[in-house]
Design a protein around this nucleic acid. Structure first.
Lengths: 222, 222
DNA sequence: TCAATGCAACTGTGATCACAGACGTCTTCA
DNA sequence: TGAAGACGTCTGTGATCACAGTTGCATTGA
């Protein structure tokens, strides 16, 4: 049985919303893998609720293409084609680039310590081959920055992209030898933010968002 | 009773999906107005189905913030605050700008006649004060272009933005004297696409996406 | 031994019911 | 005449059941 009263899940009165949020995070950090089946009744049993809230959560995820569902067949985590993955990373680079440029205007002095903490977490997770923790720290690093853009709509949209690329990234990381440049542009992004250099922050963020695409290149050529 | 077997709605086996698509278009063209209540049982009766498919459609729309729902209260069309509207139009300008730049690479010779047809439709609708038709033609013009970017993920995300700005635009248009520049940058965008000038297409599209923001300026200052 | 067939256990989907909280109106009392 | 309280109606939400189509395994036949 999966408990839903974790602190991180907002205490909405709604069962559906909590299951939805929980599954979303599982997708972001790669706890659900491409092509994995998720069934309404199984999840309902895991969460110890009826099928009702689960089916609504799954339908929502399917509508934002975080899951795929065919008629009378189990929902599945999508198996992204090369072009689909490239498309997602392209949108991410466009939006995260714009967000980083805006974030320069709102970033606060104490934020940099937090951002550096996420980098340390990524480093530790990478050393332990812990893909989930690595992806979570990576997400939190990026998420923290584009939250500082002060545009809630943009923030939600980028979140949706992480949900969709998460399983695919996790698959790539575990099936791959360590890339030498796992840090991406993260440290340089912090520098640009500290220097309030919006143009530079944008460029670096656009480049970093393509890190996932690089991963794919190595995957498909190996 | 509202019929769902219109040609435009894809013949998915799913009732929920068809109701979802129908409501989405109603939002895009402003058939549902800000703050309007939409109730599960009322819609179920209108569509002549049970509450089940409707509640799933409404929940989906709420999850993408095309509707808002409080506990035990009817779902409502959101009444956007000035900053929320500005945020949406900003994201639209970023994404549609990038899409227009890509569209230059894929646009076909016969496309321009279609695009000009949409402009004529906008002109006619404007002359008849038909806000729904105006918004539909405007949506189809833009939609046609960003579909040509060849990025399905980006296309779906921009679609979602039109769903959210639709009711607000309709409200602005009907409560406003005609702006003199209703055409926006549409004709110039066609020129840029024809000249395969990606940079220009991007600039014009970014500017045009802010047309809605202009509308708001006039609204709030009147 | 292998392939074809059938059955059993799964899948999502729609309908229906029970429930609790919100809202508005109408009545009643001061 | 006014305000306060109660009741009926409407809201979304969760649970449960029936149904039909899919899948995969086991059995049976050649």
């Amino acid at each position: 049985m999966i408990s839903l009263d974790a602190q991180e899940i907002s205490a909405t009165a709604n069962l559906s919303a909590r299951i939805y949020a929980d599954l979303r995070m599982k997708l972001i950090i790669g706890d659900l893998r491409p092509n994995e089946a998720v069934s309404i009744r199984t999840l309902a049993s895991d969460y110890n609720v009826s099928a009702m809230p689960v089916r609504e959560a799954l339908r929502q995820l399917a509508s934002e293409e975080a899951l795929v569902g065919a008629a009378k067949k189990a929902y599945r985590v999508p198996n992204l084609s090369p072009s689909q993955a490239a498309n997602l990373f392209f949108v991410r680079s466009v939006l995260e680039g714009a967000a980083a440029e805006l974030a320069v205007l709102n970033i606060r002095k104490g934020d940099f310590k937090i951002l550096k903490k996420f980098i340390v977490q990524m480093e530790n997770a990478w050393a332990k081959n812990d893909a989930s923790s690595f992806l979570r720290a990576n997400y939190e690093f990026h998420s923290f920055i584009y939250a500082r853009a002060g545009n809630a709509a943009m923030q939600a949209i980028i979140d949706g992209l992480y949900v969709r690329t998460g399983p695919w990234l996790a698959h790539g990381i575990v099936n791959l030898v360590k890339p030498d440049h796992w840090l991406g542009e993260h440290t340089r992004i912090i520098d640009a933010l500290q220097n309030r250099d919006g143009q530079k922050a944008r460029e670096l963020m656009e480049k970093d968002a393509k890190w996932g695409s690089d991963l794919y290149q190595r995957l498909s050529s190996s």
